[in-house]
Simulated assay, not measured.
Amino acid sequence: MTDSDFVTSTRVFYDTVAEDYAERFRDVLTASPVDRAMLDAFAELVGRGGAVADLGCGPGRVTAYLDSLGLSVFGLDLSASMLAIARREQPGLRFEQGSMLELDMADSSLAGVMSWYSSIHTPVDELPRLFAEFLRVLAPGGHLLIAFQVGDEPKRHDKPFGHDVILDFLRRQPETVVELLEGAGFTLVSRTVREPDPSELTRQAFLIARKPL
């Protein structure tokens, strides 16, 4: 696993805040019908039983939702503390520790890749490498769903929940991400941007892309 500065800082941040973070966002998917609709669409495109990696799975709640839709899904995350929560709360699912930038998976081994707000700590100059790795592990015709906050300036979280850690949450413009995905070899399938709900500060973007046949 590449242990660059942003990877290390991301791991330390989530190891520190894991329990508070998991509790704070416990019901966020239940309260977001548009977000669930995007996951439903992704699952239908992948197809029932399709092998999917939920990369940056955190406490595993999106992993569990994809499992409920009939996908053969497992979660991967940098943070051992997040994975401990995921394994505790979803004991029937598989969770592994690792980096999205260096996936221990064979070429063309997946029908779907999920990056649900997990690329938001990756600097923009590292995104081509990240998207190339997503493309590598997808089978031809496989689908990627990537979600992120829309914007131009990062949101710095300094001492969240009273913990002495700091991390930038990077916002993107959908057009920038689409260009990078297409540059990596993906074909765009869907671009959705929704307005922020009362608990959010920015619009939210959901891109579905496909690896060409």
Rank of each mutant, 00 (worst) to 15 (best):
H157S: 13
G70F: 06
R94V: 10
A111L: 03
P160A: 08
R24G: 02
Q204A: 02
T30Y: 14
R136N: 11
R61Q: 12
G50L: 13
A209H: 07
I120Y: 01
T63A: 08
D104V: 08
R191C: 05
H143F: 14
L71D: 05
H157W: 13
G49A: 13
A139K: 11
F206A: 12
V193E: 15
D20E: 15
S79A: 11
S9W: 09
E179P: 00
T202W: 08
G70R: 04
F42M: 05
R203W: 05
S72Y: 03
E182W: 05
L138P: 07
L127S: 08
R24N: 12
S109T: 03
I85T: 05
H157I: 03
R156A: 08
V178D: 08
A31S: 14
D20V: 02
S9P: 01
G98H: 11
G112D: 12
L127T: 01
L103A: 03
F169W: 10
A205G: 06
L76C: 04
A184L: 07
L45N: 10
P212M: 13
G47F: 06
V52A: 06
G47E: 06
R136M: 09
Q149G: 07
E179T: 02
E182V: 05
D67V: 00
R94W: 04
I120C: 03
L213S: 15
Y21Q: 04
A106R: 15
P196T: 07
E44Q: 15
A64K: 12
D15I: 03
P160F: 08
S72K: 13
Y117C: 00
A86D: 02
D67Q: 14
P212K: 10
H143E: 15
Y14Q: 04
V12D: 13
F6M: 02
L167K: 00
F95C: 06
T10W: 00
R11L: 02
E44T: 09
Q173R: 15
L45K: 14
S109N: 08
D20Q: 15
G183K: 03
